[in-house]
Computed example of a mutant assay.
Amino acid sequence: MRLGIEVDLVYWFERATDVLLQIEAAAMVDQRIVAETLTIWSDDPIRAAIGEDGIGQRCWTRADGQWRAEYRGTIAIDRATIDLLPLAATPPRDLDGHLVPYLLPSRYCPADRFEGFVRREFAGLEGGALAAALVDWVATSLTYAGNASTGETTALDTFASRSGVCRDYAHLLVSLARAGNIPARCVSAYAPGVDPPDFHAVAELWLEGSWHLADATRMAGCGDIARVAVGRDATDIAFMTVFGSAQLMEQSVRVRTL
């Protein structure tokens, strides 16, 4: 599978502002960068910074007035679909240190608030069986609604409203998985078929010694997803973090199969 990615961002900044951009697809074993360019219209130099867990690349830039960024990429995906159901659980005590943060509550994923629910509703399940059940539960319990959440919405809010966008689906799945002792992280990504076309958010669950992608919106299969960044929640994987204020002028994300 090859994906062609085109991203155009145009924002207005009233005063000089630092911006942390995170829109380049990550080079990984199961996704190869065939070709890519990132162009930023700025009077100041840009500087690369490594992403969370060493995955992907952030970019520091300085914006003042009209600011524009353009990303073009061709990504080759070589990733088999894995059935989560038979995968074994890993006891928390056996996890390596770098996985521990993905068991703990975070800003948008208050996993501790879901422990009772997971114990009651999914009693007797663990590991891959629990993971598969959680993906199905989120997929069937939520309604995708573009105006159902804001940048402040947490997984607890989504659980109560039963609606949200892709980031809300990912936050809720990650929270439930952590509550069930499955390390889970959020992933920003590109995928074809996302409706409306935009940056996408999915989850990754740690089972039987490796990470496994899961899209609870069911818009994309794991073989169609190009990761951009990973992290505890949306704080870590935001495509753009503005250290000040900005006004959106134009934004488009186009992903197609080649």
Rank of each mutant, 00 (worst) to 15 (best):
Y144D: 05
H212G: 04
A35F: 12
A48T: 09
A111P: 02
R120V: 08
Q247W: 03
R107Q: 08
G116V: 08
H98G: 03
R93M: 10
A177Q: 08
G231W: 11
A129F: 01
L142K: 11
S210L: 02
A238F: 06
L85S: 03
L104C: 10
W67I: 00
D136K: 10
D224K: 11
S245V: 12
S163M: 13
A145N: 09
I182C: 07
A203D: 12
A133K: 07
A226E: 07
S210V: 02
M219A: 11
F117C: 02
L134C: 09
S106F: 07
Y190S: 11
A189P: 01
G180D: 13
D136N: 13
A201I: 14
D157Q: 12
L3K: 01
A229K: 00
G180L: 09
A203S: 15
T143N: 05
G56V: 05
T140M: 09
L9G: 05
L85Q: 10
R15P: 03
I182T: 04
M219I: 01
L104K: 11
S163Y: 03
A63H: 06
R227A: 15
V100S: 05
T74K: 12
I55S: 03
A170V: 12
I50H: 06
M1N: 12
E152W: 02
R254G: 06
G128R: 01
G124P: 01
A133Y: 04
